[in-house]
């Protein structure tokens, strides 16, 4: 129960942060990604703001064996840079630039965005499902 409450609280705070930062606003996000044009550096502020608490959190996590609810802390990150990582990030970045939406904001917009946001979300879920099908055969 405690796990579920922490998860819901994290999700809610994540959603509010996405909304306040402007990440759920596709027009703004396109300007933030326009690094080859009239770039608006706001995304740098969002990422910096988000990374700061996590710098502390990873330091705390390194000194603990388990999280508050008793789960093991995540293992050290894999180091391998492979074609999947690069191709996946490139595909994702293109989609993000075209629609101005990435996965977190796409979910945060479900309750208020209306039909276009639901279309994007449904296509994103379909893309995830297609990957799973492809990955089983590959």
């Amino acid at each position: 129960m405690k796990r579920l409450m922490i998860a819901a609280l994290s999700g809610a705070l994540f959603g509010a942060g996405l909304l306040i930062s402007g990440m759920t606003n596709p027009a703004k996000v396109q300007g933030w990604l326009d690094v080859f044009g009239r770039w608006d550096p706001t995304l740098g502020f969002v990422l910096t703001g988000a990374i700061l608490p996590m710098l502390v959190a990873w330091r705390v996590a390194a000194r603990r064996r388990t999280a508050l609810t008793g789960t093991q802390m995540p293992p050290p990150p894999p180091q391998m840079i492979d074609a999947r990582l690069i191709a996946g990030a490139a595909l994702f970045g293109l989609g993000w630039g075209f629609a101005g939406l990435c996965p977190g904001p796409a979910m945060a917009s479900i309750g208020f965005g209306g039909t276009p946001f639901l279309i994007f979300f449904a296509a994103m879920v379909a893309g995830m499902w297609l990957f799973a099908v492809w990955n089983r055969r590959a």
Partner: peptide, 27 residues
């Protein structure tokens, strides 16, 4: 917009910190 981005960003990072230290998960 930068101030809103920074504040919203800190909430996003706070959420990730809570999920990591509370549930041991990467957000």
């Amino acid at each position: 917009d930068w101030i809103a981005g920074l504040i919203g960003g800190m909430m996003i990072g706070g959420a990730a910190a809570l999920y990591l230290l509370g549930n041991g998960r990467i957000m």
